[in-house]
Design a binder for these strands. Structure first.
Lengths: 258, 258
DNA sequence: CGACTCGTTGAGTGATATCAAACCCGGTGG
DNA sequence: CCACCGGGTTTGATATCACTCAACGAGTCG
């Protein structure tokens, strides 16, 4: 993949949030970066790490953000997919408080941190787009607090499945209501604060009631209305109206076609 | 309180994160705002609200950020105190996904949203300080996911008490290891995903073991090392090294004294 | 003196965890 | 081609932490 092709993915993503002008795009294309790839359980960034010199944009693949507790339990606090920044949450912080680990084989563009900071601070359009990105991330964290804090197992799992469905769809890596979920049930449990055993029973019960269908790791949401009701899922917190790449692409194509 | 005094609180806060120049300060002092105050259980912003025209800086008092689930349970996702922005999390989003409610009598400076956006985007120093603020907020959300997802009742409560201790101290509204916690046990429960009854038993057990002392709503952490161990508390996620107002004030005063 | 909110305590219940075993399936080596 | 291996999934039995329901006490406000 050519260098400009990779950063143009980033342009497409940001442009979906805020309309960029040509100077903005040039500045983005001038960012120093290297392409990296990681295999499944490897760390991309470690908890406590100081002064990472890069910030990673996901070109393809999935990664999780996590933390271990004193007793060795793991909590996954976020899942990042194609088109997300992996450590936007640390862009302006000196030390990373959470680890980031590859969930699948993942390709990232590791962008020089200082250059990305400067771009964000000095170009209002880019800055605004980056802000939206970071705040949407934060909005998802907050929803996860609610999910894990106040919903029962069925709702938690259903909620997560709904979130994935929308996010993957808008990232362009899933069809409507159907996707490959590359996580073990243990990882699913670590994301929703349950045991793998209980995740298993919960998935089975959702399947038995005809809310979802499973084939290996492929998930199909049979009836969106019912599963989103069970999961108490309201997409507002994803702020998809603030344009996602997929939607914007369609819109941009329409514009071009005129 | 005079108008310039209020915004100078904001300057002090931001200056603690990033050194501001005089043009930055002038721009901040020129922000259009109105002083507002709210009483205890009133809403400052409502879930789902569209296009709020202001962003609130807390001059004095406490507020919570929360969401209700379908079955009517409440989860508090954040607590904001003196020196915090209440809805920084929504500054660049079209719709608020979470409600904000006064926890005590609270005084806020409601700053024109567009003006604050412009300030953030056009002045790199201010922008950087705002970014740090927003990312620290987000880091706390993530820690809360961990807290609620993977720790037992004792740890959750202990962790929250530790967090409050440090944050209040650095906000300048508490002494070392001792503070007034203006929350009912029910609200505490809604913050850590427990029942008020269970919070009560947990507090009692922490007291019985000599980890904390309570007098009404006053809390004293008797032995920081032990309680932080019980709460699995590591302050890294608060990023206090990225300067808090209190610390910076001390430093600034030292400078002035030379 | 009610009426109300908040904190405290007890008894019983239930959702989820824990422990343990079996099973399934893709991969690997003989 | 088969035997074996290992990670992941599934299932059952039991344990436990936290919830629910309920009552009572203390403080506060009108």
């Amino acid at each position: 993949m050519s260098s400009s092709l990779i950063l143009s993915k980033m342009i497409r993503k940001l442009n979906a949030r805020v309309e960029l002008n040509s100077a903005d795009c040039d500045a983005i294309l001038a960012l120093p970066f290297v392409l990296q790839s990681y295999d499944a359980p490897n760390y991309i960034a470690r908890e406590g790490e100081r002064g990472r010199s890069v910030c990673s944009f996901v070109v393809d693949g999935l990664a999780i953000r996590q933390k271990l507790t004193a007793i060795g339990a793991r909590q996954i606090v976020a899942i990042h997919m194609t088109g997300d920044f992996l450590d936007l949450q640390d862009l302006f912080l000196n030390r990373a408080a959470y680890g980031v680990q590859a969930l699948t084989h993942i390709e990232t563009a590791e962008i020089d941190r200082r250059a990305l900071q400067a771009l964000t601070l000095e170009r209002p359009n880019v800055g605004r787009a980056m802000w939206i990105d970071a705040l949407v991330d934060a909005s998802i964290f907050q929803e996860w607090v609610v999910n894990v804090g106040r919903r029962d197992a069925r709702s938690r799992v259903a909620h997560l499945l709904c979130e994935f469905s929308l996010r993957m769809r808008y990232a362009g890596i899933a069809e409507e209501n159907s996707y490959d979920l590359p996580m073990t049930q243990e990882q699913l449990g670590d994301a929703v604060g349950l045991t793998s055993v209980h995740v298993n029973r919960t998935l089975k019960s959702l399947t038995a009631e005809g809310l979802i269908e499973r084939d290996k790791r492929h998930i199909r949401l049979v009836d969106w209305d019912r599963i989103s009701a069970v999961g108490d899922f309201d997409a507002l917190y994803l702020h998809l109206d603030q344009a996602s790449p997929r939607i914007e692409t369609a819109r941009a194509e329409a514009r071009r076609d005129r």
